[in-house]
Design a protein around this nucleic acid. Sequence first.
DNA 1: ACCTGAACACCGTTCAAGT
DNA 2: ACCTGAACACCGTTCAAGT
Lengths: 183, 183
Amino acid sequence: MTRPRRRADAELNRARIVAAARSLVQQPDELRLNEVAKAAGVGQGTLYRHFASREELLVEVYRDDVHELVEAASVLLAHHDPLSALAAWFRRVTEYARIKRGVFAAVTTSVRTDLADHSIGSIGEAITSLLDAGKAEGVIRGDADARDVILLIGALTRLDDDEWDTRADRLLRIVLDGLRANE
Amino acid sequence: MTRPRRRADAELNRARIVAAARSLVQQPDELRLNEVAKAAGVGQGTLYRHFASREELLVEVYRDDVHELVEAASVLLAHHDPLSALAAWFRRVTEYARIKRGVFAAVTTSVRTDLADHSIGSIGEAITSLLDAGKAEGVIRGDADARDVILLIGALTRLDDDEWDTRADRLLRIVLDGLRANE
DNA sequence: ACCTGAACACCGTTCAAGT
DNA sequence: ACCTGAACACCGTTCAAGT
């Protein structure tokens, strides 16, 4: 868990890049990496030295948000029954997806990276804990796993801006119902 | 419904472009438009004259496949109960999505274009007819519409190649269960 | 009316030179 | 060990010239 040592200037550049990216992702256009480098005041090569891919950068940009989602899962489970916790967590994810669309991409990327590492990762664990609580009470189908949830919730990513109000909640309810054990 | 008149050479070029694209989309790489033009033996400008956007081209490339899916809906409804028909149609879409991943993008684009035209379009009608049959019998939730289905089924698009066998069926079952009226 | 293909635009990515 | 930024690569898109 100890950070790899970096030269102070490298550390600073890295932080500048992430800060610039965090500000630029707010805009509706696709994030341009050269623009990030320019806004951060570093050369393009420096960006690539710190982040081997666009996705690595995005994971870093949304690290705190993803962490909050992970924390939320256990808090919700402590205070609600499994189905309500899952529903509330879904709503939480949706809010993020609505405001910061990139969060979802970061979540998906994280999960994918984690799986490639043969580890489930923190987001995967969060979703798994929600599902497991429901399975233990027999209210969630036994065969569903975290990646099923990620893939289905991903439908929200493709919502048009003007559809959220009418459609997002219903989509989540459909997914939630589909995940319930057929009593 | 009558075709707009085109010069014979234009018609031929158009057909060549679609044929070249149909062959090139088979490959795993992204479809490069310049490559399509080259393979079709026409200038790039000719491609743009016939298809204003990449999506327009893709809709044309998959026109027959989309039409087959539309036809399948009424055939299935004639021979099965609504839920089985919907399940069978889902499986059909999945097979297409697995073999020709682009079909799904074409379906989505068609639906989106149709909606922008304030018309539901043939694919939208096909899905609506499947849903309506189920609603009439009280086995499908009354608030679900064709676009919900498109968005949810779209989860399959993001499956990795090696996941299909283990995950595709389950995802479809989850969506199908979610679409059922809670008895 | 339609076609051609050189040229332009836009970005991601690399790498030689520098500190 | 790290940074810079010119240069390259890759594609989509346009448009002047041609039939």
